[in-house]
Design a protein around this nucleic acid. Structure first.
Lengths: 175, 175
DNA sequence: CGGTCTTGGTTCAAGTTTTAAACAAACCTA
DNA sequence: TAGGTTTGTTTAAAACTTGAACCAAGACCG
């Protein structure tokens, strides 16, 4: 089969995408390293924990939402634990699972550094976009996400199989 | 000054952006590592050289278009040179500069692996976008790029100063 | 010219991060 | 209970990045 090369428009879009994501990631990383002393990934860990109920998440779930391997997450959490921003806790109902919990100190760091981070995200991205473009951005990338991680789910979607995520008590037995 | 937090729409867009760029970069890196035995950055080096006149570029220019530090580029080119895909050459007119040149072998590797790469980019991104969305993507990110790298240029744009880029012969003296 | 500043590029050492494979414990299912 | 699966960590190796220091070559300026 003959290759479907990118059209000139697609090439321009692709180049712009590559350059922008590169510059953006650089800018954000630099700012966070400067003001929070950690790379973007670590900050994302804290941010996700902060949003979660009771400020805690199973390692696997966290890895999944961050789209990284468990191994990588183990490393990140170990570092954050060393700095006292995160603590590990055992799941009461599934003794294999461990939870990453945002400590008070972690919360404090987040509260202190979040404004600067948001400011950077604004300055580099959102302040340059019209409201319509914000919508377009979301639309485009939610599609991409669905396409990329849906692959696994798609095949088995005739199996309405539900995994118990998030360390939660087992469902009560039916009488 | 009080923080301007992200609106709910912006938050959704931001999350989608983060997840998508992450998954995309992963998918592309995995495919290239698999089929070309190199990470995305290295492939980009080859691709850029391939597009350049005479398949060669000054290190500094290449680093600039790739948005990476010269140090990082030195590392990449050294690796690629070790594999025979790139060769260094001295600039005849400015003996400080060195050029990265795509070798025949590098060209061959690129020709062999480009179809697979393009296919991945299509499958993960462009095949999911309408033509309008391709345009939106370009528009959004060219704006971001301008904003981020324009910072340096903006301040001095009253100085119509032109640097001689790309190893080229000096302009002939005016009679 | 001679001195100074800037640019281009590399080197080097240190540190960070990523990967992949192997592992152990806990859970599930038949 | 046996056999498979999920969870999470460990480990060692490799890959990568950073930043500072450095040298050489060009540019600038009196």
């Amino acid at each position: 089969m003959t290759t479907r090369w990118l059209t000139p428009e697609e090439q321009r879009a692709w180049r712009a995408y590559l350059a922008a994501t590169h510059l953006l990631e650089d800018a954000i990383d630099r700012q966070l390293q400067q003001d929070a002393g950690m790379p973007h990934l670590f900050y994302s860990v804290l941010a996700n924990l902060s949003d979660a109920p009771e400020r805690r998440l199973r390692m696997t779930d966290l890895a999944e939402t961050l789209k990284i391997t468990r191994s990588r997450l183990t490393y990140a959490v170990t570092r954050l634990e060393r700095d006292g921003l995160v603590r590990r806790e055992d799941c009461r109902w599934d003794k294999r699972s461990s939870l990453a919990v945002l400590t008070d100190e972690g919360t404090a760091v987040l509260e202190r550094t979040a404004p600067g981070h948001v400011e950077t995200v604004r300055a580099t991205l959102f302040d340059r976009l019209t409201p319509e473009q914000v919508g377009q951005l979301e639309e485009i990338f939610t599609g991409v996400v669905r396409g990329l991680q849906g692959d696994a789910t798609e095949a088995g979607d005739d199996v309405p199989w539900r995994r118990r995520s998030s360390c939660a008590p087992p469902p009560p037995a039916e009488p």
